[in-house]
Write a protein that binds this DNA or RNA. Structure first.
Length: 371
RNA sequence: GGAGGGGUUCCCGAGUGGCCAAAGGGAACAGACUGUAAAUCUGUCGUCGAAUGACUUCGGAGGUUCAAAUCCUCCCCCCUCCA
């Protein structure tokens, strides 16, 4: 019997490990890729589609769901799971990323973040306590503390401020956590300074969270900078707790992170790129709108068994995309998620049999030309 | 037969003497996208050239002018109305 928060490592291969994280809605096998469903939907897909491609857990977003339709409404309607008809675990991000992505629309103070809604300009104040309340209303199973995510190029001075605020906010989030069976994860920051990353890990991991995240990566830096910080930071984090790299990444980023001992990932790349025509295959990235596929009768990826690859040709997928047919978004998303979820599954399998290095080499080779 | 309107670069369409290889949109071609303000954005888009640039284009043929997609003449084609 396991209780929520239990994290059981079942095999290791170098620093890479495969494990099971218990949530109140079931186990999450790691390494786990988590599809992003910001607004209470993984865009263009139904929960049945998500199950079909092997999703274990998905994300929702505090900022976006608070604005629309409103977390109180979601609570009234029975919580996010019932509202969107997803019965697996949901992890909600705190709005910390919107501090970065909506930089021009917010003001950060020690007390919290004041946003001007990107929808109607109305002012919304997100304190650490408010963010926890919203996530409780949503009923998510893993909740993220409010953090201050700063972009590449932020001064050391501002990075320190953000780091220290993030620690204080983490304490405040824990203080109001209702202990309703949901897990709470802390988030480390520190930008691109190793000593600051060390400081942040020290401060955040001193607090009793069920998991620890690396935030503030993939915010405009080069892949080398990201890898450098990632491989410096991940080993500093507790071995017996899940490590979550937020917002990352490309297939090679994921494999690189797994090799550093990271357990969980989320990224909009597979779903966004699906809607923009870039598909991930066993042969690398494919831009399905390219003219070369106009009369290509082969499946997108013969090595893939997703609905799109089982039933349709490249020519048809190209036609759907070029014609802006709605089915393109669903089929492309189904495929890309199948690829990312399949990659995570392959990582778990490879680690279990001690063959992770081979898989890592394969993926690195496949995407070697990417920045 | 009469009156009027019109033919512009792949398409639609602006342009009525020089700032025009010609606005804008579409199509086409290529690229980007990392805790989703994204079914979004960027670039190319007459030929040659790395580029300054050179050359060929605005229904056809002539003409006026230093200079014509723009003005004149004739011709071809399309549309509307009248008989």
């Amino acid at each position: 019997m396991s209780s929520p928060g239990d994290f059981r490592v079942t095999a290791t291969d170098g620093a890479a490990r495969t494990a099971e994280l218990a949530t109140r809605r079931g186990l999450v096998r790691t390494p786990a890729y988590m599809p992003v469903g910001t607004a209470g939907t993984v865009k263009s897909l139904t929960p049945e589609d998500l199950h079909a491609v092997g999703a274990q857990i998905i994300l929702g977003n505090t900022y976006h769901l608070h604005l629309r339709p409103g977390d109180e409404l979601v609570a009234e309607l029975g919580g996010l799971h019932r509202f969107m008809h997803w019965d697996g675990p949901i992890l909600t991000d705190s709005g910390g990323y919107q501090v970065f992505s909506l930089e021009g629309l917010r003001t950060v103070t020690d007390d919290g973040v004041a946003f001007a809604s990107h929808i109607d300009g109305s002012r919304r104040f997100f304190s650490p306590e408010k963010v926890m309340e919203i996530q409780a209303n949503l009923g998510s199973d893993i909740r993220m503390v409010l953090d201050e995510c700063v972009g590449w190029g932020t001064s050391r001075e501002d990075t320190v401020k953000a780091l220290e605020r993030t620690t204080r906010w983490a304490e405040r989030c824990l203080a109001v956590h209702p202990h309703d069976g949901a897990l709470v994860f802390g988030i480390t920051q520190g930008g691109f300074h190793k000593d600051l990353r060390e400081q942040s890990v020290r401060e955040i991991t001193a607090l009793p969270f069920e998991g620890y995240a690396i935030g503030g990566l993939s915010v405009g830096e080069s892949r080398e900078h990201m890898d450098d910080i990632l491989h410096h930071t991940a080993p500093l984090m507790p071995e017996h707790k899940p490590r979550y790299l937020m917002g990352v990444g490309t297939p090679r980023d994921i494999v690189s992170a797994v090799s550093a001992g990271v357990d969980m990932f989320d990224c909009v790349l597979p779903t966004r790129n699906a809607r923009n025509g870039t598909l991930y295959t066993s042969q690398g990235k494919v831009n399905i709108k390219r003219a070369e596929f106009r009369n290509d009768d082969r499946p997108l990826d013969p090595a893939c068994s997703c609905e799109a690859c089982r039933n349709y040709s490249r020519a048809y997928l190209r036609h759907l995309y070029v014609s802006r047919e709605l089915l393109a978004y669903r089929l492309n998303s189904v495929h890309n998620l199948a690829y990312f979820l399949g990659l995570a599954a392959r990582c778990r399998q490879a680690i279990a049999v001690g063959a992770f290095q081979d898989l890592a080499a394969e993926i690195m080779g496949l995407y070697r030309e990417e920045a």
